[in-house]
């Protein structure tokens, strides 16, 4: 579903390599966790997938489509939730959701069903007629999550999704991710919370200084490590 073929990105005329020759392939129905310390290149990688940063070289393929050659086709399969939910604060929540749904050309019935479901689940339905500017950080995040889920994306990309969510919502989000994978969709997310990654990811990649230093299932990662360790120890060992 998602294939990164040796993509790189550097800043300051190549002096700072943010992402260095990363390749990975994620199959439909997989939850893929992207782990790494601050500044390792997680967000840069994600931005290259969703069309916010053009890779210096390499290719991004989404559902068999080169995401930088046919961006429109690729983007209609993707939904993206950034780490910082900046949305139009003068729009009402519902106006924002309708706007996003219009861009994905989702029918009224479909969007109604999805909105009802997710707004109830995230408990923001009654705030949906207020302007986004009046929302708390967490509410904004839930709004962005809802807007990303309305389009039933084949590839769901989230940057640090658990930050700022209350325990119940992050529990719900994990359930949603699982559900989506059962339906054959793909979830790709970055996180600091190792416990989340350990629990719900089918596969994990650990990135450090722009390079993938380990990739595989939890079992595979453990077997490569010196001893049968927790993910935390593996993480610390690899990203030193």
């Amino acid at each position: 579903m998602l294939k990164l073929d040796s993509i790189s990105k550097s800043y300051n005329k190549g002096r700072v390599k943010a992402v260095d020759n990363i390749s990975l392939e994620i199959k439909p129905g997989e939850i893929f966790g992207f782990l790494g310390p601050n500044g390792a290149g997680k967000t840069t990688t994600i931005k290259m997938i969703v069309g916010l940063l053009k890779p210096d070289n390499g290719s991004v393929t989404v559902g068999g489509i080169n995401a930088w050659k046919e961006p429109l086709k690729a983007k209609s399969m993707i939904s993206y939730v950034p780490d910082n939910p900046e949305v139009y604060d003068k729009l009402k929540g519902i106006e924002y959701l309708n706007f996003i749904a219009d861009m994905y050309e989702i029918s009224k019935d479909k969007r109604e069903e999805k909105m009802n479901y997710y707004l109830e689940m995230f408990n923001i339905k009654d705030a949906i007629e207020d302007i986004v500017g009046s929302y708390s950080h967490g509410m904004k995040q839930k709004l962005v999550l809802t807007s990303a889920l309305i389009s039933e994306p084949d590839l769901f990309i989230l940057d640090e999704p658990m930050v700022g969510l209350d325990p119940k919502s992050s529990f719900n989000l994990k359930a949603i991710m699982r559900e989506m994978c059962d339906e054959g969709k793909t979830v790709f997310f970055s996180t600091h919370v190792l416990e989340v990654a350990e629990k719900i990811c089918d596969r994990i990649a650990i990135i450090s200084k722009g390079k993938i230093v380990a990739m595989g299932t939890m079992e595979e990662l453990r077997s490569h490590a010196k001893e049968k360790e927790s993910l935390e120890n593996i993480f610390l060992e690899l990203t030193e």
Partner: peptide
């Protein structure tokens, strides 16, 4: 809030 009344496709 009734979502039905406030959704519309354009």
């Amino acid at each position: 809030t009734s979502i039905k009344d406030i959704t519309k496709q354009t």
